[in-house]
Amino acid sequence: MRERIDFSDVTFRYQEDAPPVLKDVDFFIDKGEWVAIIGHNGSGKSTIAKLMNGLLFAESGDVSVDGSVIHTDNVWEIRKKVGMVFQNPDNQFVGTTVRDDIAFGMENHGVPREVMLEKVAEVLRDVQMESYEEHEPHRLSGGQKQRVAIAGVLAVAPDYMVLDEATAMLDPKGRQDILETVREVQEHSDLTLITITHDLREIVAADRVIVMNEGEVWFEGTPREVFAHKDALSTIGLDVPFVAKLTQEMKKHGISFDREPLNHEEMVEELWNLHSTK
């Protein structure tokens, strides 16, 4: 039994007579990996997230977690293994305070109270929200609420964490904070991360990227490989970041880099390299 999430030829549609949202989708996510799933609206990426922990079930094909195919009998086991953070910060905050909300998942799994109190303090440290334990949701910013949501997932110690457009409703600062938090969590744990997004800037830190288009896996590769396909990316409706566009324009003028720069720092570095080797 391999420890991974496996989609094999998964097809899914919301209504029987509707066109399929996913068509023969086939991929896997290994334990410990950070995989970004990217695609424009309606590409089926959120459906993938919901199939991963049994909020939806495949019409044909199998979705399996650590070797067991998800069906109605084992769905609660699966949900313990696969945690989810959703898009809207307000609509996933269940508790009346930060502490109550983080504990919600643990309460569902019958964790004893003393363990919960310890765990809440621990995960609040992980997301840098130590002093907010007693805060009510309306006193938190969107980014803080999302960090609480992440903490709530971490508290039940899942093997996989799916972030379904978790930064889409945040301002740039909140988005940056979340990505920072996620990166740190990933660094000192063996948590498998699956981030679902439509923003190419968010795939940079991932190990592997799956690009979805029209319900099909359109491309699979490292962030650098994805960035190298920027022309094609814009044809499937994804916004190409400035650095990638710049690289593209420079290539047209006969300037090419050894490796695709992913962000401003790498771009500057490449430019210096170019300058010094000239």
Partner: peptide, 26 residues
């Protein structure tokens, strides 16, 4: 819409009614 999303989030976090649940507020 909020109710629907909240219900989904609760389910994703393993909520299946009061049976076997513990409470952090004592």
């Amino acid at each position: 819409k909020r109710a629907e999303e909240l219900a989904m989030a609760m389910e994703a976090r393993g909520y299946q009614g009061g049976e076997g649940r513990t409470k952090i507020r004592a």
